[in-house]
């Protein structure tokens, strides 16, 4: 047992560092190569992952670069149900407030009761607001793309910046099985 007590007296960091030995290959590389070869090509990311993924996946780096506001929550929710229902008139959901000097990360939640093979989604901004990605303003005022939707929540982060104080409406629409759904998100840009 004395050997055990000696071990316990050594700093934990030293003992953990001793675990840093290179394991023998034992066929690991060959096995990995086979799996990679069978995997096919790398996956082409969807539009929003391509444009906004770097922001969403690395906010610790992106926030300082974008000067993003914090504390913005999910705002827009589009619900799709199988039962027929008259399309509701667009109603602004809630005002999200952020300063003109910051980029807001608005998380749009496309909530579906059932999985959808393909939904055509469009997000539009009015004059006075811009999409933001990879540290720069995007020229387009709207983006449209198709993607499948899972049953439940489908969250899409959208980085937006306002040029001057005011109230603006971001429009989120989706066409699912030929049926259009539209909601507006009220964004308020304030001084600061």
């Amino acid at each position: 047992m004395s050997a055990q007590r000696d071990t316990e007296r050594r700093p934990l960091g030293d003992r953990l560092r001793e675990l840093r030995t290179d394991p023998p290959d034992d066929g690991f590389s060959l096995s990995l190569h086979k799996k990679l070869a069978e995997a096919g090509e790398p996956v082409e990311p969807s539009w929003w992952k391509r444009t906004l993924g770097p922001i969403f996946s690395q906010p610790r780096i992106a926030w300082p670069a974008l000067g993003a506001a914090t504390g913005l929550a999910v705002v827009a929710v589009l619900s799709f149900m199988r039962a027929p229902a008259p399309p509701p008139a667009p109603m602004p959901i809630a005002a999200v407030e952020f300063p003109a000097t910051k980029v807001a990360m608005v998380r749009v939640n496309l909530s579906a009761e059932v999985a959808v093979a393909s939904a055509q989604i469009r997000i539009s901004l009015p004059q006075g607001l811009s999409f933001w990605a990879d540290g720069q303003e995007l020229a387009q005022g709207s983006f449209e793309w198709s993607q499948p939707l899972s049953a439940g929540a489908n969250e899409i982060p959208v980085a937006v910046r306002g040029h001057k104080p005011g109230r603006y409406r971001m429009t989120v629409s989706a066409v699912i099985d030929g049926r259009p759904i539209e909601e507006e998100v009220l964004l308020e840009v304030v001084d600061g």
């Binding site: 034992d26 690991f28 096995s31 790398p42 770097p54």
Partner: peptide, 30 residues
């Protein structure tokens, strides 16, 4: 090793998402 290979497969499949948002090694380990 099975777990390591599954993780590396995910790295390979998602490598088109790497846009120099960080050092490659940081992205890989993330």
């Amino acid at each position: 090793d099975d777990l390591a290979q599954e993780a590396l497969l995910k790295v390979y499949k998602s490598i088109r998402l790497f846009k120099y948002q960080s050092a490659f090694s940081s992205w890989l380990y993330a």
